[in-house]
Write a protein that binds this DNA or RNA. Structure first.
Lengths: 165, 165
DNA sequence: GGGCGCATGTAATGAGTTACATGATTGA
DNA sequence: TCAATCATGTAACTCATTACATGCGCCC
């Protein structure tokens, strides 16, 4: 949850926004860097408000659905920096889920195993190509994307090595 | 959850066991490859039983607490193979959580940013050293560990590159 | 007799997901 | 007029986590 809070606070720090706007931005620009879903974001915004990290103002244009415009508060800014520091300084062991399957690889017949791993390889390559096709982005997102590519490539190269054994 | 089920089914496929035994094995040998916790494992075993993927037999030695010995069923074996195939063939984009912070790096003062990233670097190195110190393991776990190391190193190298900018 | 190991869980809580609900406006 | 977009969410559900409960056996 922390990284989700960090994301919302970070976006709100640059500019006060309403939920739809945030979700829209995330979906269109950050889909590859986060997996925060809409319902989750709405709920989280509400929780952030309860904790006093953001403040809401209602806005209405004509007869359109009213907007809840969220702005970061003073304590929100502080919390943002704290979260940022801890997350930047942290290094969690990466991605157990995918690794679990690797432990049991040998339970499949060699040819089937190869087939699965080849599919995996294709997907990795597709992901990489996909990320590299994005025209270099606004600088902020770039680091995250860059890291993604680096990790995906390392994964792919390792996988290719495994396939040769 | 799928990878947790895969893990338990995989372990039970090799040998029928009771919950304590599974948890013990996981804690002692697989802590670095999975993050399945005890309470979760017990609950999951129960769910697997409800779905008919495993069967339970009660055992009692003397006056000691009775054991629920879980054995994989026929449909459990099938499900295991299905899960294994899908997970082996899958390639999810890696680890968004940590990447989120990277997007907002620039919100910190340069020296503080460097400090955080250096802490991160130390932790990565510690993780790597830790994994490499393990005497080469039973072959099954090895692939998972190997991949971990590869990814951690890629992450570290990338981070070192970033630190130079 | 006191603590550790064995062996099971439950309870409370919280985060996240998918699918659905609502209702107005705008553009083809 | 019909679909998409704007804008909010709720409901039902699943998974996971932490902390705690229970009670016997074994060894020092």
């Amino acid at each position: 949850m922390d990284h989700h809070a960090l994301l919302l606070l970070g976006l709100l720090k640059n500019q006060a926004q309403h939920g739809y706007q945030l979700n829209d931005f995330i979906e269109k620009n950050l889909a590859r860097v986060t997996n925060l879903k809409k319902a989750t974001a709405y709920a989280l915004l509400e929780r952030l408000r309860e904790s006093g990290l953001v403040a809401v103002k209602l806005e209405q244009e004509g007869n359109r659905p009213p907007r809840k415009v969220y702005a970061i508060t003073q304590s929100g800014e502080t919390e943002f920096l704290n979260l940022l520091r801890t997350e930047l300084s942290s290094a969690e062991p990466i991605s157990s889920p995918e690794s679990t399957a690797l432990m049991f690889m040998s339970e499949l017949e060699p040819d089937e195993r190869m087939a699965c791993l080849n599919i995996r390889l294709e997907k990795l390559n597709a992901h990489i190509a996909n990320l590299e096709n994005i025209p270099t982005h606004k600088s902020a997102v770039n680091f995250a994307l860059e890291r993604q590519v680096v990790l995906l490539k390392a994964d792919r190269n390792w996988l290719m090595g495994v396939l040769e054994r």
